[in-house]
Design a protein around this nucleic acid. Sequence first.
DNA 1: CTTCAATTCTTGAATATTCAATATTTCCAA
DNA 2: TTGGAAATATTGAATATTCAAGAATTGAAG
Lengths: 147, 147
Amino acid sequence: MAKPSKENTPITEHLAYLLAQANREINRQLELRLSKEGVPVEQWRILKVLSDGNGHSMGELADAVLLNHPTLTKMIDRMVSDTLVYRVQDPNDRRKVLMFISDRGKVLCRKLNSLAVDQEEHILESYGDKSTSELKRLLESLIDSSN
Amino acid sequence: MAKPSKENTPITEHLAYLLAQANREINRQLELRLSKEGVPVEQWRILKVLSDGNGHSMGELADAVLLNHPTLTKMIDRMVSDTLVYRVQDPNDRRKVLMFISDRGKVLCRKLNSLAVDQEEHILESYGDKSTSELKRLLESLIDSSN
DNA sequence: CTTCAATTCTTGAATATTCAATATTTCCAA
DNA sequence: TTGGAAATATTGAATATTCAAGAATTGAAG
């Protein structure tokens, strides 16, 4: 009996591939909902992070919304033009810029949240309560174990 | 007691966000390994799909490797320049192009496979056998339930 | 103090991706 | 048959992302 080799495992069985595929699909669905308000997923994430009302530096934001710095800077430029967020120089460390959400941003964020909740509920229905929370748990622990 | 509302759930608890985060992290690690051979993850996927020796049309490939058509076309152009793959017009349907892997592509693919296996083994170690297979199972079923 | 390395953010050029339009071939209904 | 709609792949322009470099500020060692 030959020693089992993983070297020609089909791509569809790799964890990296399954994650990419699931992410792509769920993201596509979310995009579809949020497009009702003409907002890309990343902007919703930004608004959501800022909606705690506190100032967040660009670096902090970039980490939180999974974008690298230059991409975030350019996206924020657009959102500032749309008056969804605004910049304030950090008084304690003038290298930093603190981002805040505007009133207009808050209103938009609420609409987007409810569209996103719709999606989560749709997933819960078709995929099941139990599977969803179990999947979330496993993903969190995978992320933890990767640091 | 207020009715529990999901509308201000932190972003980190959304399934879409957890998937994006996990995908980003695992993909980053894989990228790092494959960069030893200077090959992007998508090219490895392409080689892997083609390494069954059969011809695959561009549409089929695009689905399999999670790229849209124009992006794939341009990536394939590069891989043809590198003589990793080659195009053949499908004799049965001349709208289609069949992609094949070259000998050079096969050699490279074997090296890449073993780098990828390294990663999967690293995940198994730090994350555990049980969690990994359970996560894979749940991801597969999520993908299924999304179609 | 002063100098120099580290941190933070932005910019511009290079690169990659996407959208819409095009070309080719096949399919099918009239 | 044939004429038009559908399927397949590519192209080019518009857009977005990334990489490397730069500007400003802080921190800290000498």
